[in-house]
Amino acid sequence: MKTDLNTNLRAIWGRAYVRVVGANRELSWLFFEVTLPLLAVFAFALIYRGLHAPEQYIGFVVVSGAMVAFWQNILWAMAAQFYWEKEMGNLELYLIAPVSRMAILLGMAVGGLFMTAIRAAAILIIGSWIFGVHYDVGSWLMLLVVFWVTMGALYGLGMLSSSLFMLYGREAWHTANLFQEPVYFISGFYFPVRSLGSGVAMAASLLPLTLGLDAIRQLLFSGGPVNPLLPVRTELVLLVIAMVLFNWAALKALTYMERLGKMTGRLTLKSQ
């Protein structure tokens, strides 16, 4: 069934609305979603202070705190979202709605990006203020381009994961948990990723987060040594490729997993 563009756009807005407007109505969520990553920022910044590390490392931690918010959103509100929807009984409603499945995913992504951007900005501002982080931005334009391309690639990965998670049962919870500390480690959230060695760092570059974070750090702290993985322009090209690839793969995976789910009878099977 073909649906006109207007209906799909309305579906995107409808799904995004919950996160753009609804999620900001509950102020306790906002509080905790800003506070929890901030606590991690404080802890890691104090470790660096305790070790008498260069102040730039504390800046790394603050920037990473903001990026953690995006990664958490992708894990729990994108990748695992269809699992929650299945548990709550909403997934079948999405599937019978006369809209593209990608419209639903795009709505989730757009809403999630907006919702998280507010939280990430708060983390960045508060963290920078408390620890007196000094930024030396090389190019604001490049910084904005790199940020948005990173988000495009990350949310593409989120949509792809969402399709894969659709058929997951209870293990979705554990799997999402598993992609926290290990990803923080291999993506170099709290240290320059190159410290892991070039081989590991290049392998970690399969995650757009690794390249995006490295490029953003290079652009935010251009005045000092940041031990970069690759030049920013190279990272940007790789991020663009990742963005296209992940979004295309998400579209294919969604169609395939939906068909597989129907064939195996697991699409709307709860508590499996």
């Binding site: 470790i47 070790l51 500390e181 480690f185 240290f191």
Partner: peptide, 8 residues
Amino acid sequence: ILVVMFKI
């Protein structure tokens, strides 16, 4: 993560 932070 702590190990790498400490080492670098």
